[in-house]
């Protein structure tokens, strides 16, 4: 079998007596958009944190482009092209928006040697433009609304020109209009191309989301977690029909 873009192998993680992920395995292709769903506490965020090396798994392996990245430092993993975003956004509150994005441009991956700050700033501005918050570039991050913070997260992720983007509840706390906008940005990013000085290859994505209707529209495949175990893995149409998923997650009424 040809090596997969991302291979998650038999990941176990316990917190004390609590099993957060139990023998989780799945593969992801270079161009795939994967939805990760499951009830609260199913281990979705833990799984992302295991992939980015914030948490170390008790056992199991993560391979990225054939390379074992389990146990590597987070910044090393990020530099290989995996961009994480946060569920509860954590900007550098006392820095202006533009500086927040510039920080992500500083990683060795997206940084050419000897680039002067002005160049970095221009790149960061393009990322803000992409996310649609360039008009607020000079404001402090602590003044942003929930929706704008989400967009800042997207801008930060775009700025590192990732190959794999991890989105933790990109629609969380957004109004329906904002959700549509966000879905459009995600789709545009996935298509790839040039955004000003930034170049996107069109990253693969793993998206955790509770708003299933919106999620179904942008993903190719869905993995369902329940109590740390994968109970279903397949295209969205099949997932919504899967009786086990309906029982564990969707409830009696379905979507």
């Amino acid at each position: 079998m040809a090596e997969s873009f991302l291979e998650v192998h038999d990941l176990h993680k316990n917190f004390g007596g609590l099993t957060a992920t139990n023998s989780v395995s799945f593969n992801l292709d270079r161009k795939e958009v994967l939805g990760l769903i499951g009830p609260n506490g199913a281990g979705k965020t833990t799984l992302l944190r295991l992939i980015t090396g914030i948490l170390k798994p008790d056992s199991g392996k993560v391979l990225f482009k054939g390379e074992d990245i389990t146990g590597k430092k987070t910044w090393e993993i990020v530099n290989k092209g995996i961009a994480p975003t946060f569920q509860n956004m954590r900007p550098f509150r006392r820095l202006p928006i533009i500086a927040n994005v510039m920080v992500s441009c500083l990683s060795p991956r997206s940084m050419k040697r000897g680039e002067w700050v002005k160049k970095v700033e221009a790149k960061a501005m393009d990322a803000l433009e992409f996310a649609g918050i360039s008009d607020m570039a000079l404001e402090k991050a602590s003044t942003l609304s929930q929706g704008d913070l989400k967009r800042l997260e997207v801008a930060r992720a775009v700025a590192t020109e990732p190959e794999l983007l991890l989105l933790d509840e990109p629609f969380g706390g957004l109004s329906p209009a904002e959700t549509d906008l966000m879905a459009k940005s995600i789709a545009r990013l996935h298509k790839g191309g040039r955004f000003g000085r930034l170049h996107s290859e069109g990253p693969a994505m793993i998206i955790i989301e509770h708003k299933l209707q919106q999620l179904m529209k942008i993903v190719d495949r869905i993995v369902v977690l329940d109590f740390g175990t994968i109970i279903a893995d397949g295209p969205p149409q099949e997932i919504v029909k899967n009786p086990e998923v309906i029982e564990a997650y969707l409830g009696k009424g379905g979507v």
């Binding site: 430092k73 910044w75 954590r90 550098f92 006392r94 992500s104 500083l106």
Partner: peptide, 12 residues
């Protein structure tokens, strides 16, 4: 300001 986030932005 925030070591953990800096780390997540790919900073050593």
């Amino acid at each position: 300001q925030d070591r953990e986030v800096a780390n997540l932005m790919g900073m050593d």
